[in-house]
Design a protein around this nucleic acid. Sequence first.
DNA 1: GTTCTTGCAAAGCATTTGCAGACCT
DNA 2: AGGTCTGCAAATGCTTTGCAAGAAC
Lengths: 142, 142
Amino acid sequence: MTAKELLNKYLIDNNLRQTPERYIILKYIYKTQSHFDIDYLYNCINKKEKISKATIYNNLEMLTKAKLIKKSSFNDTRIVYEKALNKTQHDHLICNQCGDIFEFCDPRIKNILDGIEKITNFRVQNHSLNIYGQCNNQKCKK
Amino acid sequence: MTAKELLNKYLIDNNLRQTPERYIILKYIYKTQSHFDIDYLYNCINKKEKISKATIYNNLEMLTKAKLIKKSSFNDTRIVYEKALNKTQHDHLICNQCGDIFEFCDPRIKNILDGIEKITNFRVQNHSLNIYGQCNNQKCKK
DNA sequence: GTTCTTGCAAAGCATTTGCAGACCT
DNA sequence: AGGTCTGCAAATGCTTTGCAAGAAC
């Protein structure tokens, strides 16, 4: 199923309306390469179309609930979203110098979560692991 | 060294002044059991003493730099602090229902960080691992 | 005496809300 | 037709800032 089809299904299943804004927002999100914040998306969309920030805020929340995007925050304040469709669970490396975000997977994280469930009463629902440091990329060093 | 002695040393080393407010704030922080937010601390202090919020904001930043406290954020928005002195590195379990925060340590996290340094150019400086779920404590269930 | 710190009020900033008009169904 | 969604502007809430008065050195 494509993102658009999934959105369509989500809207129908939840008695929400299929407004053009919702499909435009989804289209621009699925054009972005990677992580984006609200301002980036707003500017991106409003170069061609015209959608207010309130509508973008509302619909990013809806898309998060629909699991079409995923929200993360870095360094206590920086909030970014990313496409969630067809993506496996992953965590983030964030460069403290240039702010670039990299994804990585490590099966040991699942072991840690399983271990917690085994030895405590805590039932794990989700997690966020952010690793901060220096990416040492060409652009970053300057 | 006590927290007070460390604060003293930090202030002297950094040419900052030893104001009574700074010691009062530290005293109230080291009275708290666990994680606290700014409002909690502000109310706590201002039952007996009188310190403005601006001063508390300023000094929490200073104490974070001095590594006497540590700042964390949960669920993208909830910002809490905790004492950092004599505490080993740990991560957090956060109950999605009652908001309670639990600490845990797992040596495999260090392995994961070491692995990243080994196979990428990324130099790890710090990390945050937050695990969300249900704590299933008596109080929580109600 | 000089410089830093405090406290207040105002300013900032990102996000949310209220509401009138637009538009899905 | 009826309820939902959008867009605007105002409101909110948390944090920062500017500045005058006070305190540390």
